[in-house]
């Protein structure tokens, strides 16, 4: 079963950058796909990759990361400055971020406004043929 864990920006807004990343990674390590409202700052995204690399072992092979961040290209200068100030003060709450475990998500494909999750093939369940053989014995 696949679990999508929604995290609103408010849930991480007051955390220190390190704690934000730890929180997000803790869900991913439980094999959950995190759907975060908004996006992390650029430096935090780099820190997320760095922390992921520090934690990689034979079981945890990393993450797949995708951000959908619609931008209004036609907005006026005033709106752009306003949006920038809101981002600086309150964080970037536009769009959303998907972070999933690499052992479940093969790839996240992205166009500017569309996102596709390619999942890894699941192991097929054991065939009935094998169990029949066992019962004959």
């Amino acid at each position: 079963m696949l679990t999508l864990q929604f995290i609103s920006y408010n849930q991480i807004a007051n955390l220190e950058p390190d704690d934000r990343i730890k929180k997000l990674l803790s869900f991913v390590k439980q094999d959950k796909i995190v759907l975060l409202e908004g996006r992390l700052r650029d430096e935090e995204e780099a820190d997320l990759i760095r922390k992921t690399m520090e934690d990689i072992d034979e079981k945890f092979t990393g993450i797949e990361l995708g951000v959908v961040h619609p931008q209004d290209k036609d907005s006026s200068l005033y709106k752009q400055i306003h949006a920038m100030l809101v981002r600086l003060l309150l964080g970037n709450r536009n769009g959303f971020t998907i972070i999933g475990p690499a052992n479940i998500i093969q790839e996240i494909k992205k166009d500017p406004d569309k996102i596709q999750l390619l999942m890894k093939d699941q192991q097929p369940p054991p065939t009935k043929k094998t169990s029949k053989k066992k019962s004959k014995k």
Binding site: D42, I49, L65, K109
Partner: peptide
């Protein structure tokens, strides 16, 4: 390859910042 991968965007964003 697809240039829209988040790694590319993260690298560019960090250099811009």
């Amino acid at each position: 390859k697809d240039p829209y991968s988040q790694v590319n965007i993260t690298i560019v964003g960090n250099l811009q910042a």
